[in-house]
């Protein structure tokens, strides 16, 4: 793996750059400056940095209050806490009261695999996407992370962004091509099936496409960084043109990106769908890579599942 920069670091480096030029950019955090890699922001921009201690409810409430004064607030903490402990503040103070806070959940999914279920966030896409007008995003690599951060700094929207802990291989060659809000990116062409992935599963989906290609199977790969509002057109084109959809995400198989895809496909152009994610169980402990392997989120496992589905539904 050549890239050594985690998405959370790409996020904070970008934010320091932006906040240096824009004094309305604020960061609020709950004793997570190390976890988020906010040390440089705190040291160089203390007037735009707010430490609230270990108090995630207060963190989002304060962030909403700051946003109501026109501050462009990024509330940052581990995804497991922000998406659960402060859920009512997200619902009432941010969404309902129309205060555009950017909620940044770091080390999401099973990044903290070995630390146990308390530290995992496999529910966050599901709960966040039910709130009206709250955008939900999950970047695939450092370039897309930077693009999303820049987009959020320029647009006063309430959003939840989940990113992982460790570095992931580059999916994109640069920032410019990596992200358009609300749009999927087509990363590979093929007509036998479509794999829709997001976050850290995107490079595994590309690996699966490569494996399948050697066996004469062509799959379309879509990166879906915006889970909400989701790219309906890209999903329907995939359903119409490839007739089989496999979704892959670092999330519970219930309620996440796969469910969002199935909601559209089942109602508008039904084709077979398989949702790959973490099954309905308390995950076992282990490193992120070990758990990706155990739960079938890696290239080999995805390729094998696609093969099985093609045999079942298309031959």
């Amino acid at each position: 793996m050549s890239n050594t920069i985690p998405n959370r670091k790409a996020f904070t480096d970008t934010l320091v750059d932006l906040a240096t030029k824009d004094p309305s950019i604020f960061v609020v955090t709950s004793d997570a400056r190390g976890s988020v890699t906010l040390e440089k922001f705190a040291d160089t921009l203390p007037g735009q940095f707010v430490e609230v201690g270990i108090a995630e409810q207060n963190e989002i409430g304060i962030a909403a209050g700051l946003a109501s004064f026109g501050k462009r607030v990024f509330a940052c903490a581990p995804a497991c806490f922000l998406s659960t402990r402060s859920l009512e503040q997200v619902k009432v103070d941010v969404v309902y009261s129309q205060n555009p806070v950017r909620i940044i959940g770091i080390s999401g999914g099973i990044s903290y695999g070995a630390l146990g279920y308390s530290h995992q966030s496999l529910h966050d896409f599901a709960v966040m996407r039910t709130f009206a007008d709250l955008a939900v995003l999950c970047p695939a690599d450092r370039f897309q992370t930077e693009a999303i951060t820049r987009w959020l700094a320029e647009h006063d929207v309430a959003a939840y962004v989940r990113m992982g802990r460790g570095p992931v291989p580059d999916v994109y060659a640069n920032v410019q091509e990596s992200f358009t809000f609300g749009k999927a990116n087509r990363l590979s062409e093929g007509s036998d099936a479509t794999i829709i992935a997001n976050g850290e599963t995107v490079h595994h989906a590309l690996e699966a496409a490569k494996i399948l290609g050697t066996q004469g199977i062509g799959v379309r790969v879509l990166d879906m960084p915006t889970i909400k509002p989701i790219d309906r057109d890209a999903i329907l084109s995939a359903a119409v043109e490839t007739g089989l959809i496999i979704t892959v995400e670092e999330h519970s198989i219930f309620g996440g990106m796969g469910s969002a895809v199935a909601e559209i496909v089942s109602q508008e152009h039904p084709v077979p769908i398989r949702i790959i994610g973490i099954p309905d169980e308390i995950p076992i402990g282990g490193s992120s890579a070990e758990l990706f392997d155990h739960y079938g989120l890696t290239g080999d496992a995805i390729a094998s599942e696609v093969m099985t589905l093609i045999k079942k539904f298309k031959r």
Partner: peptide
């Protein structure tokens, strides 16, 4: 909820 949001406003 109100006091946390008020703290954010007063801090701003």
């Amino acid at each position: 909820h109100g006091l946390s949001c008020s703290v954010g406003m007063a801090l701003a």
